[in-house]
C-alpha cells in the first residue's frame, strides 16, 4: 500500500535517512523501531509531506506522492499522529477531532450557504462520529474542554482520536504510548488492537517492545538512518544486527 524507494533526507548535509526502502502492506501492522535518533520520525515526516525527502520516491496506492503538499497526501487517505503532539491547543477537544473529518466532510462555503438543511444533517452526523471516537478513547466527558488545557495523556489520546476518526486508509502513529502511564498504555494498546482487528493498515513507531511484539505483523528496523532489517517480529528479534544495534543498547541502558 505504501512503498518507500531509496528515500533519503539530509539536514544541512548530515544524512538522517539514507536509501531507506520498504513496503507497508495493506491490512497489516508494520512496526518501525530503532534507537533514538535513528530517523523514524523523519521518515514519517517525509511520508506525510511535513518534510520533503532529499532523494528517493514515496508511493501510496500506486501513486507517487513524494512531492505532494501535506494536505493533498492527507486527502489521499493517510492520517498520522506526532511524537511531540501537534494539537490545536485553542480549539475544543471536539473541534480537534472534527478536523480529522476534513477530508470526509469538508464542505465548501458555497455548499454551506446553499444547502443549509442538508449541511445541518451532515454536521450532526460528523459530530456524532467525532463523539464516538472520543468515547473510544475515554474522553467524551472532556469534549468541550480546550485541548491545550488537558493533561499530557489526554492530549495524546485526542490526537489519536483525531487521526482515527476519519478511517483513513493508512495510519502513521509516531510513538502513541510514549509518556503514558501503565493504565493509559494498556487502554491505547487495546484501541490499537481493535483498529488492527478491523483491518486498518498501520505504520507504528514504538519503543514499547511488548506492544510491538503483540500487534505487529512485520517489523522494520532503522539504525542511523539506514534500514538494517525487515521481517516478522520473531525474525527481527533473533537478528544479530538488530540485537546489536537496538536491543543490545536498550539492555545496556537497563
Amino acid at each position: 500500500m505504501l512503498r518507500l524507494d531509496q528515500v533519503g533526507k539530509n539536514f544541512g548535509g548530515l544524512p538522517a535517512l539514507s536509501n531507506v526502502s520498504f513496503e507497508v502492506p495493506q491490512g497489516l501492522v508494520t512496526a518501525l523501531i530503532g534507537p533514538n535518533g535513528a530517523g523514524k520520525s523523519t521518515l514519517i515526516n517525509c511520508t506525510t509531506g511535513v518534510l520533503q525527502p532529499s532523494s528517493g520516491a514515496v508511493r501510496f496506492l500506486q501513486q507517487e506522492i513524494t512531492a505532494l503538499p501535506a494536505h493533498q497526501i492527507a486527502r489521499l487517505g493517510i492520517a498520522r499522529t506526532f511524537q511531540n503532539l501537534k494539537l490545536f491547543p485553542r480549539l475544543t477537544v471536539l473541534d480537534n477531532v472534527l478536523t480529522g473529518l476534513t477530508c470526509v466532510g469538508g464542505r465548501s462555503m458555497l455548499m454551506a450557504m446553499l444547502r443549509l438543511p442538508y449541511l445541518r444533517h451532515r454536521e450532526r452526523q460528523l459530530k456524532l462520529r467525532a463523539m464516538e471516537a472520543l468515547d473510544r478513547f475515554g474522553l467524551a466527558d472532556k469534549a468541550a474542554w480546550q485541548a491545550g488545557s488537558l493533561a499530557y495523556g489526554d492530549k495524546k489520546r485526542v490526537e489519536l482520536a483525531r487521526a482515527t476518526v476519519g478511517r483513513s486508509e493508512l495510519l502513521l502513529l509516531d510513538e502513541p504510548v510514549a509518556g503514558l502511564n501503565a493504565e493509559e498504555t494498556a487502554e491505547v494498546g487495546d484501541q490499537l488492537k481493535l483498529l488492527r482487528s478491523t483491518g486498518h493498515t498501520m505504520l507504528l513507531v514504538e519503543h514499547d517492545m511488548d506492544l510491538v511484539m503483540e500487534i505487529a505483523d512485520q517489523v522494520v528496523v532503522l539504525d542511523s538512518g539506514k534500514c538494517i532489517a525487515t521481517g516478522t517480529p520473531d525474525e527481527v528479534r533473533k537478528n544479530p544486527l538488530v540485537l546489536e544495534a537496538y536491543l543490545g543498547r536498550m539492555e545496556a541502558m537497563a
Partner: peptide, 17 residues
Amino acid sequence: LSMRAVASNPTAAAVVG
C-alpha cells in the same frame, strides 16, 4: 473550523488535509 485550525497550528492543519 478549518480557519481556526490553521490559526491554531498550521502543521497540524496540513496533515488533517
